[in-house]
Amino acid sequence: MIELKKFSYWYPGTEEPALQRISLDISEGEFVGIVGANGAGKSTLCYALSGFVPHFYNGESEGQLTFNGQDMAALDLGQLAGQVGLVFQNPFNQISGARFTVREEIAFGLENLGLPRSEMHARIDEALDLVNIQDLADRSPFSVSGGQQQRIAIASILAMQPRVLVLDEPTSQLDPDGTRDVFTALSKLVSTRKITVILAEHKLEWLATFCDRVIALGGGKLRAEGTPQEVLSSEQMLRLGIGRTQYSEAAARLLRTKKLPVTLEQAKKALK
């Protein structure tokens, strides 16, 4: 669905590429996690996968970046916006500031799609429901906590019903309950609607539990990809500054296996 072939990208006025010769193929219905230390290129890769690079951020690129076989740069931005949604790391970059209530904020994007009113309302209710913020519908988006703003930003993209959803650290300000709500909602959308979810995240245990595939970045390069267990249990994660779950760390000291556990279930099985 989205394909990168030896794709490199330079932000305007920079000499070091933010992404370097990345080759990657993401299929429809996949739940993909992106890990990397801060500055490894996670956000830039999110922008590339959602068309913000090159459409919004200028700069130079090399190699290929295609969406459904078409060159991403040649696609019409309006059309692309109907198919791919990006949730920014900082909800402040997302919330319009032009609307007085959360309900109106979520309607903001939908108004540009020319939908009937009843359809808009249905989509807003569903989006509020998915991230569990029905009770905020009539509040101002600016009178709520950082974690709640993060949920609003996610809801406003979910309401657009994109086929591909790219999220840049969407749970950074959420408590464990909020994180669970977001991962559960995304997982439900992947299984019931076959949408594609790509998510950059530091919370390794959650990625390991929910993702089909994990991609590890370091210094703008693709360093590893595979199942969560293959990627997240490897010692390379320590060198890349990504770290490992404590399940892996404990098991590494106790077991002689290359396939260390990365989730509670796996650790229980390996150590019982």
């Binding site: 990397g36 230390a37 801060n38 790391q89 650290e169 950074s172 300000q173 530091h202 500054g241 990504i242 770290g243």
Partner: peptide, 8 residues
Amino acid sequence: IGQDELGC
């Protein structure tokens, strides 16, 4: 919050 392994 938002810190990677090195930041933590």
